[in-house]
Amino acid sequence: MNIVVLAKLIPDLVEELEIDDSGTALDMTWLRLIINELDDHAIEEAILLKERTGANVTVLAPDIEGVDDILFTAAAKGAERLIKIVGDYESGVNNHALARVLTPVMKDLQPDLILVGVEAHEDLDGSIGPLLAGYLDLPFIGYVASIELEDGKATATKEYPGGLSVEMEVTLPVVLGIQVAEEPPRYVAVSKVRQAMKTAEIEELEAGDFDLAGGPTIDRMYQPEVSEGATIIDGSLDDIADSLIGIFKELGVQ
C-alpha cells in the first residue's frame, strides 16, 4: 500500500497581510509561510494508516521556502519518502498549474491513496485534491474525517454540515480531501526533526513550466474595509456594558 500526501505552504494568518504595489497580490516580504493546517491533518491521517496497515508514506510538496522543515517534520513522524517539486514559484502558481505538474509525478509514484487537505485558504481556482483527481481520472471524496482500508477499497467518512456524516466506499486508487485526521496531528520533538535532517533525504523533481490555464486573473486585491458595518462602541467598561444592555433591550432580548 502506497500513500502519497500532498502538502502546501500557505501564508500564516497570524501575521497581518498586506497587498504589494501591483495591487493584485500579497506582499510576500513580511509573510510567514506555514503548512496548510488541513495538509498537516492529511499527513497525520497517512501516518495513522501506516501504523494500522504498514503502508508506505510519501510526502510531496512544492519547493517553497520552509518546505524542508515540513518534509523533515513529516519524516520525523514516520514518512518514508520526501519529495519536493522544484520550480519557479515566484510569479504565482495556481492549483490548476500545480495539479498539472503533479499528474505525471503521481503516475510514476503509483499511489493507492492520495491524501491532501480538503482546501487551503488561498485557493482561488478550486482545491487541488479534486483537480488532481480530475487530471488523473481518479475518484475523489472530500471533507473526510476517517478512513478504513481493506483489499482494494477504502471506506471514507465524509462530513456534512450540522454534524451529519456519511460513509462512502470507493475503489482504490482514490484521492481523498482531508478535513480532519482521526487524531490531532502529533507533536514532534525538535530533536526528532533534527535527527531526521541528518538521516532523511529529500528527493527533488523538476516542475517544468507552469500552465496557469483554468484559474482566473486577479485585477485587484484589497482588504475589506475595516469596521465597514459595525458601529464601534467605546468608553469605559461600565459605559460599554450599559450601551450593550441598552441594545439588548432595544432588540427585545432582555
Binding site: S227, E228, A230, I232
Partner: peptide, 8 residues
C-alpha cells in the same frame, strides 16, 4: 467587525 452591526 465587517459583518457585525455593533462592535466592541
Amino acid at each position: 467587525f465587517n459583518i457585525a452591526k455593533y462592535g466592541v
